[in-house]
């Protein structure tokens, strides 16, 4: 571990060992009761609440010196907050970092699950803004805790039904509620519902940290995660009409990039690592142009 004069006084991965022990206990309890929100004494981190303090505390508590860390935000390793969090752990823990999904042992994410399937040796740590799936239906914590205890989830189904009555569709497109192991209704964090099926029976351990709201919850490996739906309105993920403009991938989540002010746009992979690996393997999309040029462009900096 390299210690700079700026960070010498902080413990490995910033948090003191007592705090890590407290968080690990919360994590163990969360794993033992899949989908249940475990209160924990969230610390004030040197980054703002709402910017991943829950995920950072979970990651700090499970990280060891041999771990390889990947941090993504919106599926990308290069968004500013992902860069900042990765830098934080490089500085305070000195761990190796990567952008390659398969190389990582711990992946901290905001709003996406990587397209590359995860394995049993990996842990996915989600940053969670509002852990309570029913918060917008019932703002009171004392009430929602009771509803979970009694498995009283009618309110959630009523909300989804009202969506169908008004819009003809369930109008929830991200943070789409799931039921874990047939018991607790859980907020999968604001990932698009496109990613919900990846949570089901995942070989990787999935941990969720909400720092401001002081909650940790988990989905253990190979656990059933079911998206709520109705028999006549079954759950369905988003589909895209065209493949990725850079790597021609289909069946992945795409971001829309506006090209001009005349309605011109392109769709590209939200998972930047997945897209880069496909291009490296020779896949070419509609707008990827000359392969050598594309490589240059993606390596270069924005003018």
């Amino acid at each position: 571990m390299t210690a700079t004069s700026e960070t010498w006084s902080y413990n490995f991965a910033y948090l003191d060992e007592q705090t890590k022990r407290m968080i690990r206990r919360a994590i163990l309890k969360a794993i033992a009761i899949p989908g249940y929100q475990v209160p924990f004494a969230s610390r004030e981190m040197p980054m703002p609440y709402g910017w991943g303090t829950g995920g950072v505390q979970v990651t700090a508590s499970i990280l060891g010196p041999d771990d390889v860390l990947k941090v993504i935000d919106q599926g990308s390793d290069d968004t500013t907050n992902a860069v900042a969090i990765r830098g934080f752990f490089e500085k305070t823990a000195g761990v190796a970092t990567t952008t390659a999904t398969e190389e990582a042992s711990v992946i901290q994410t905001r709003h996406r699950i990587p397209e590359t399937p995860l394995s049993e040796t990996q842990v996915l740590v989600y940053q969670v803004p509002i852990p309570e799936p029913m918060r917008y239906l019932e703002p009171r914590e004392a009430e929602t805790r009771k509803m979970h205890a009694l498995q009283e989830y009618g309110l959630m189904h009523v909300k989804l039904y009202e969506d169908i009555a008004r819009h003809g569709h369930i109008a929830t497109t991200y943070a789409y509620p799931v039921k874990v192991s047939g018991r607790y209704v859980m907020d999968p964090s604001p990932t698009p519902k496109f990613d919900n099926p990846k949570m089901d029976n995942s070989p990787a351990l999935q941990l969720f940290g909400a720092g401001r709201e002081k909650r940790i919850y988990a989905v253990p490996p190979f656990t059933q995660v079911t998206s709520l739906d109705f028999e006549d309105h079954p759950f369905a993920v988003q589909t895209f009409e065209e493949p990725c403009a850079l790597c021609a991938a289909e069946g992945v989540f795409l971001d829309e990039v506006v090209l001009d002010d005349r309605g011109g746009r392109m769709f590209v992979c939200s998972d930047t690592n997945h897209c880069e690996e496909r291009r490296a393997a020779g896949h070419r999309g509609r707008l990827s142009g000359d392969p050598t040029k594309t490589e240059d462009a993606s390596q270069g900096e924005r003018p």
Binding site: G50, Q74, R112, T173, Y174, P192, E256
Partner: peptide
């Protein structure tokens, strides 16, 4: 302030949905 200002962070994946 943290949660209010976190709206500055990219949300384009959710917006796309």
């Amino acid at each position: 302030t943290g949660f209010t200002e976190h709206l500055k962070l990219p949300h384009y994946v959710d917006f796309q949905a």
